[in-house]
Amino acid sequence: MAPAIRIDALTKDYAVGFWRKRPYRALDRLSLEVAPGEVFGFLGPNGAGKTTTLKLLMQLIFPTTGRAEILGRPVGDVAVRRRIGFLPENPYFYDNLTAEELLHYFGELFGQSAADRRARIPALLDRVGVGAERRLQLRKFSKGMIQRVGIAQALLNDPDVVFLDEPMSGLDPLGRRDVRSLILSLRDQGRTVFFSSHILSDAEALCSRVGIVAGGRLVASGRLSELLAFETRGWELVISDARPELIERLGARVSRTIEIAPGRYTLELPGDAAPEQLVAELTTAGARLVSVNPLRATLEDFFVRHVTETGAGARAAFADESHARP
């Protein structure tokens, strides 16, 4: 099946500085694909290149090199915008319009008839939780309410692919829960969702796949289970009916021991240990095995390590390259 989003070596350089312009690489040969129906989390710290990528996909800025396609069409094709929705980061709309008027305006741009809009817009505003305020001018809206209106306008055309730039930004816990369930309902309807975030718990709760970007480069991408499976940093054994001298005998083979209750222990083993051997030894000595679990890195561990290792290096490498240019 053709990918819903295809990004091929996308690069964006800006000239920075007032008098002596020097190049700044905001995005460096980023390539990735998102399959139809996927919820893809585009993760990275502030300034990593997430918004740049989304702006390139939306043709709000133009790439220095590389190309991108949405639903098999080049991103510059205006027709493809009929099938996509976009929520900008910290969206701003027209102060003197009401939420309802804004959606009518945008609906007209999609060629929706007045009757269609009258039927669709109140339901959509209800769905994002600002139905009661639909006749209020946007200047009176809070940041969180504007964010909800932004989500409504991104879904106005029933899009096949939805791009959300930091969708949880400015939302309270209730709002975040609403947006999470909205993204999941989009997934259940078979829509493709591409969202950027630096809130990792959102990605863990929602995404089938993630891409991690740092310093303008994609440092990792894949299924969460795949990315984190390689990161088994140890094992956790819970045993009961174990005598203290048995635990003492284990010595350095166990990196951490916690006595939960008399005779009941949690044992942590290093990543390179073979838990089967230890389990056999313990059970032979009369202890009972309660559970054995691999200790995997959380997405946060993974993220922090990759971002600090690769991210900072990427920009430094570009700076070196640009200095080396004649």
């Binding site: 939306m58 709000l60 976009f86 900008p88 969206p91 701003y92 945008f106 741009l109 060629g111």
Partner: peptide
């Protein structure tokens, strides 16, 4: 004010 982001990502 960046309201153009909402507008130019429509079929315009």
């Amino acid at each position: 004010r960046r309201s153009i982001y909402g507008l130019l990502t429509k079929p315009v």
